[in-house]
Amino acid sequence: MMVVAVVALARSRNLFAVVVLAGAYSFLMATVLVALDAVDVAMTEAAVGAGISTVLFLGALYLCRSEEAKPAHRPLIPFALAVSTGALLVYGSLGLPDFSDPQAPIHTHVAPRYLNDGPQETGVPNVVTAVLASYRGFDTFGETTVVFTAGVGVIVLLRRRRKDKNKES
C-alpha cells in the first residue's frame, strides 16, 4: 500500500492530491512503526508527519499555484541515476545483519545497559523517554535550538515580503 501511494505520488501532477497522498503515506508509515515496536516514533510521525507537515504543505500551496507543469523532457537520466543508486544500496545491504537477529551489533553494545539500568537510574519505565530526556538531554536541547533557528528563518523569509507589500501600497 505504501508503495502504491508513493508511485501515485510520483505520477500525479495535481499538487493538492500529492499533499493528501503524502499525509496518507505518513499514517501508513506510522502503522508500520507500531508494528516495529517503535510506539513513540509512530506517535510523533502521525502527529508531525501527517499533521503538521500536511498543514505546512497546504499553506504553501495556498500561497503558490497548485498545478505542476508538464515536464519538458522525459526524466531518463534521473531515473537511471536513481535505479543505479538503488542497485548499489541493494548490493551494500547484503552485508547487513538479518532482520531481527539478536546477535546483531546493534543489540549487543549500548542498548542493554539502558534497558537494564535505565529504569533504576531515572525512575522512568519508558526507556525511550529516559534516554531522550535524561541521558541525552543535551541532544534534545540542540534539537530545540534547530527548531528555533528554523522558526527564525521562516519569519525572516516571510516578513520581508510583507514589508515590500507595504512599500508598494
Partner: peptide, 24 residues
C-alpha cells in the same frame, strides 16, 4: 532496541523544521 527510536524522534522534529524552512 530503544536507541534508534530516540535518534529518529529527534530526526522527525528536525525534518519538519527543514521542511518548514524549505517551503518558506
Amino acid at each position: 532496541n530503544p536507541l534508534p527510536h530516540v535518534l529518529i524522534l529527534t530526526a522527525i522534529v528536525v525534518g519538519v523544521a527543514t521542511l518548514a524552512l524549505g517551503l518558506a
